[in-house]
Nucleic acid binder design. Sequence first.
RNA 1: GCGCCUGUAGCUCAGGGGAUAGAGCAGCGGACUUCUAAUCCGUUAGCCGGGGGUUCGAAUCCUCCCAGGCGCACCA
Length: 569
Amino acid sequence: MFKAKEEIGALLEPLVALEASRISELLEVPPDPEFGDLAFPCYVLASRRQQAPASIAASLSQVLSGRRGVFWEKAVPKGPYLNFFIDPLSFGREVLRQVLSRRADYGRSSRGRGQTVVIDYSSPNIAKPFGIGHIRSTVIGHALYLIFEALGYRCIGINHLGDWGTQFGKLIVSFKRWGDEERLSEDPVNYLYQLYVKFHQRSETDPALEDEARLWFKKLEEGEAEAVAAWSRFRRLSLENYAGIYDLLGIKFDYFHGESHYNDLLDDTIRLALSKGIARESEGALIVDLEKYGLPPVMLRKKDGATLYITRDLAAAIYRYETFGFAKALYVVGAEQKLHFQQLFKILELLGFEWAHSCVHVPFGLIRFKEGRMSTRDGNIIFLQEVLQRSINLAREIIEDKNPDLADKSAAALAVGLGAVRFGDLSNDRIKDVEFDWDKVLDFSGETAAYIQYAHARICSILRKAAGADLAWEEGLADLLQQEEEKALIKALAVLPEKVEAAAEGYRPSVIARYLVEVAREFNRFYHQCPVLSSDSALQKARLLLIDAARQVLVNGLGLLGIAAPAEM
RNA sequence: GCGCCUGUAGCUCAGGGGAUAGAGCAGCGGACUUCUAAUCCGUUAGCCGGGGGUUCGAAUCCUCCCAGGCGCACCA
C-alpha cells in the first residue's frame, strides 16, 4: 500500500503523538473490505489518553471530517478502529503507473546498495547422489540470492561442497575392497552411492573398517598420492553429475568452494585458536570448551591429527570475510545443524571477530517419509533427478491433454514441472519438516506454481489477442477500473515491494510464494467477472493495462523464486 | 538426562498481540456456443495439543505438561 500508509502516518502524527513511521507500522488491513482499506487501532492510545479506544476513534474522525488526502478519501470510526478508505482513483493510478513504468524493476530497490551478502547454499556431499533432501538448501538459497539481489545487495553464492572429510576415507576403503572400474565408469555417482551404503552395512559388524577409513582420510589430509588421486577422481565424477541438475534448475554459483578449498588455511586457523587461548588439548585431541556459554565442547582436531567439519567451517568463514567483506553471511543449512552453527558463531566471536554477529544460520526442516527419516547411509533416499523427471513428464501429459495445439510443449512442461517441485519447497515456512508424498509433489491444482503460471498464461493469451492495441499509458484510464474485482487486484499488485522486503527480512521466500498465489487468485476472480476483449474501447484499454501490470507482477515475483512463467501452457 | 524445533478444519498448511481464526486438497452443489475449466462461485468442517499466567485484548507473549521430530567429542 506504499504511499497510502506513509500519507496516513504523516497525517496522524500531530494528532496522536506517535511518530509517522510508527503509525504506518500499526496500520492494518481490516478483515472485511466493507470496513475500509487501512485501519488504525486506537487501543495504543487508550491508556495514555485515559479514554476508551472507541471514543478516541470517534474524536479522531471528528477532527478529520471533511478532509481528504491524495490517497485516502475518508476516515470512519468503527468500534476501536479508525478506518481509512483509500481513494480508488488516485490509488489505482499510482499503482498502475508504478508497475507499468518500472516494469521488471517493480518490486526491486536499492536498499542494500554497497553491501555484500554471502550465501552458502546447496552444498551437497560429494560422492553421494543428489537426493531430494538437497533440494531445499538449493532452492531456498537460490531464492534468497535472487531476493537480496533485487534489494540491491551484491550477492556471493557459494556452493560449500562436502568434498572433504572422513567419508572420503570410507569411499576409498570401499573402492579398494569391493570396487569395480567398469561399474564406476558406467554410472559413477550411483555406484559410489552403493559403495557408501555397503560400507555402512559392513562396518556394523566390522568396526575395524571405520578405523581404516579414518586412516585413509588422515592420509588424504597429509597429501598421500594414492589417496589424493582417488579423492580427486571421485570429486570430479560427482561434480559432473551435479552440473546436470544445476543446469536443469538454472542454478548458478559464484564459487564452488568446497571444504577442501580451505585446506591450506586450517593450520593458521588452529594456530589462531591456540594463540587466543580458547583451544586446549584433551585426550589427545584439540578442543574448545564452550561450557560457559551453555554449549557442548567443540573438537577442532582429532587425536590422529585430522581436522573436522567445523575446523573447515571456521577457516571458510574467516576466508569469506577477508575476501568479500560481507555485511551478512547466510548459511542455508538444515535445522539439524543448529547446534553446529551456534558453536561456530560463538567460536568466531571468541576469536575476536565482531562480524560473527553478521553470520546467520537459515535453517529448514527435514524431508521425511511417512515411515521415517531419509538416510543416505541406509540407502533409502529419493533421487532429485527422478522427482524432477516425473514432474516434467506429468506436466507434459497434462499439456498434451489440455492444450494439444501448443507449439512448444517441451518448454512449457519444463517450466511447469520444475516450477511445481520448486514451489513445493518454497511455499511453506521453511522451518517445517515436509513429508515426501508423490501425490502432493505431482499435484498441479490449487495453491501451486501451476496456478500462478496458469494465471500468467491466461493474461498472455489475452494480450496476444489484443496485439496491436494501443497500450500507451494514460493516467485517466485507471479511473475506469471500479469493479470490486478490479480494485482487489490493484490492491494486490500494490504490495509486491513490501512482500520482497518482508521475505528478505525473515529470510523467507515463502512470503513471496504465498503472495503470488493471492495475486493469481485475484486475477482469476477478475477474469471470471470482467471481460477484457469484449469491453468497449476505453474500458478494454484500461483492463489491458491492468492485466499487463498483473502479468508483470507475476513474472517479477516468480523470477525471485527462480520459477519460469511460460506464455502458454 | 539436557537443549532446540513443530503441534491451527478429515488431510496439507497460512496467520506470530488486535475486529466474527483463513486458504488449498478431499466431500457436496453449481458455472465452458463467450479472453485457456490447471479456472471460478456456493457449501459442509475448528475447546488454534492441554493447564496456568501477563494484557483492555492471546492461535500469537511467559510458564508447566503432553505428543512428534531433531541434536548433544574424534561424522558432515
